[in-house]
Design a protein around this nucleic acid. Structure first.
Lengths: 217, 217
DNA sequence: TAGATTGTTAATCGATTAACAATC
DNA sequence: TAGATTGTTAATCGATTAACAATC
C-alpha cells in the first residue's frame, strides 16, 4: 500500500466504474468466493486487468501479490469508498409516476437509502400514504421537513417548471446531494446526479439505426 | 461539407452528447432562434467550442462561416442522426413500478416512441388496462405480439431472475434494441442501453462523501 | 470590405493498456 | 522454491483543446 485515499483527484471514469465493481463483489461474496484476481474482474466487467488494478490503487493497495484480492475486504472497502456504509435519508419531490416508482424500488432500502416522504401539490394526493406506508405531504412543508428530519438526499421528480426552485429549497434546507430525474440542467451548489431517461433512449435509438445501416451493406 | 455520414466510427463520448445538443436545439427552436454559434452551444452545455464543431463535422458540415449554424436545419439533422424521425414501437416486460412509470412518461410519446403493451405474469394485472389505455397482457403472449405488431424496441423492467430469458425471447421475436432497467448484465445480439438506477445513486453517494471530506478540511 | 465563425489540422491532455520488478 | 499476481512505471491510444486558414 502506497497511496493514501483523498490525496489525488479521482476521475469521473473511475468513479463510474466503482458501482460496477461493487455489484460484482457483492455477487462474489454471496457465492462465498474468498478471493478474486484483477484478471477475473476485468473479464467479467469487460475491462482490462491493468485498469482494474490502477483503479483500486487510487484508494490504496487492497491486493496481495501472487494471491489476488480478498473479496470480503475489497467489498467493504468499495462500500466505504462509495459512502454506502451509512444510512441516507431521502425525500422525493413529485409524487407522479416516477416519484412513486422510485419509492417502491427495493434497491434503495437494501443500500440504506431510506425514503422518508414524498412531496406534491396535488390535493388528491397530499395527506395520503403509499401502499408501503410512505406519506405524501404538501410541498410547502418540505423545507421544514428536511430540517427536522436530517434529510441528506433530495430527489427531483417534479414538473420541469418548478424543478429549479424546488432544488433551491432543498439545498437551502440542508440536503447534501440531489438526484435529478427532470430533463433539464439544474444549477445547485451541492453534488447532483442526473438521470435523463430520454437521453438514454435517444442513444439507444442511434445505435439501432447504426446497426440497421451496417446490416444493409 | 467534406465528410459523409457513416464512414467513420463515432465514439461513444460523441454519441452521448448528441441528445444534449438535440435538447438544446429543440429549446432554441421553440424560442424562435434562427441561428446559433458553436461558442454559444458550448457555453450552454459546458463544452468547448472546438468540440462542438468537431462533433457536428463527424456527420457533415452544417454550419456557415461567419454566421454559425441554422437552428432549424441542425435540429432536423440531429433528429435524423438519432433516428428520431420515425415512429418506434415499444413493449415493456414487467408491469411493476418501473414498467408502469415508464408507460406514463410523456417524453416518449412526444418523440414518437409508442408504447403498445405491457407484459407480466401477475394474474391480477394481466387483462387489465392502465389509465391511459395501454393493455397489460400475459408474458407468454409477448413473442407473438412482437411479431404481429412490428415491435422494434423492448423494455426490460422484469425481475432479475427472468430478465435474460425475456431478453432472449424479445430478440428472437424481432426487436432491434433493448432498453434495460434490470440491474444485471444482459447478453444479447442487438444494441442494448442500460439504465442502472442504483449505480447512478451510488455515484451520487460517492460525490457527497467527497464533498464532505473537502469541507472538513 | 471587415468581422465573424466555421472546418480542419496540429498540439495537448488524460485515460487505457502494456510491461515488469516486487513479493506473497 | 516456483508460480502467480500485484503495484507501479512507461508506452500507447484516443479524446479534448488550440490555432488558424478558408470563407460567408
Amino acid at each position: 500500500m502506497k497511496t493514501m485515499e483523498g490525496e489525488k483527484k479521482i476521475s469521473s471514469a473511475i468513479v463510474r466504474r466503482l458501482p460496477r465493481y461493487y455489484r460484482l463483489l457483492q455477487r462474489m461474496r454471496e457465492q462465498g468466493r474468498e478471493r478474486i484476481s484483477s484478471g477475473e474482474m476485468a473479464q467479467m466487467l469487460n475491462l482490462n486487468a491493468s485498469q482494474v488494478r490502477q483503479d483500486f490503487n487510487n484508494f490504496g493497495g487492497f491486493g496481495q501479490q501472487g494471491y489476488g484480492y480478498p473479496v470480503e475486504t475489497l467489498y467493504k472497502e468499495v462500500r466505504r469508498i462509495l459512502g454506502l456504509d451509512r444510512e441516507h435519508r431521502v425525500v422525493i419531490a413529485g409524487a407522479g409516476n416516477i416519484g412513486r416508482a422510485l419509492s417502491g424500488y427495493p434497491g434503495f432500502a437494501q443500500q440504506q437509502f431510506r425514503i422518508l416522504a414524498l412531496f406534491d401539490v396535488n390535493p388528491s394526493l397530499v395527506g395520503t400514504k403509499l401502499p408501503n406506508g410512505i406519506p405524501i405531504l404538501h410541498i410547502d412543508d418540505m423545507a421544514d421537513y428536511i430540517r427536522d428530519n436530517a434529510v441528506d438526499v433530495g430527489v427531483l421528480a417534479a414538473r420541469r417548471s418548478v424543478a429549479q426552485s424546488i432544488a433551491d429549497t432543498m439545498v437551502e434546507a440542508g440536503v447534501e446531494a440531489i438526484w435529478n430525474f427532470v430533463p433539464m440542467d439544474i444549477r445547485v451548489s451541492v453534488p447532483i446526479e442526473n438521470v435523463h431517461l430520454a437521453e438514454s433512449l435517444f442513444v439507444l435509438s442511434y445505435r439501432m439505426q447504426e446497426q440497421e445501416k451496417k446490416i444493409q451493406k
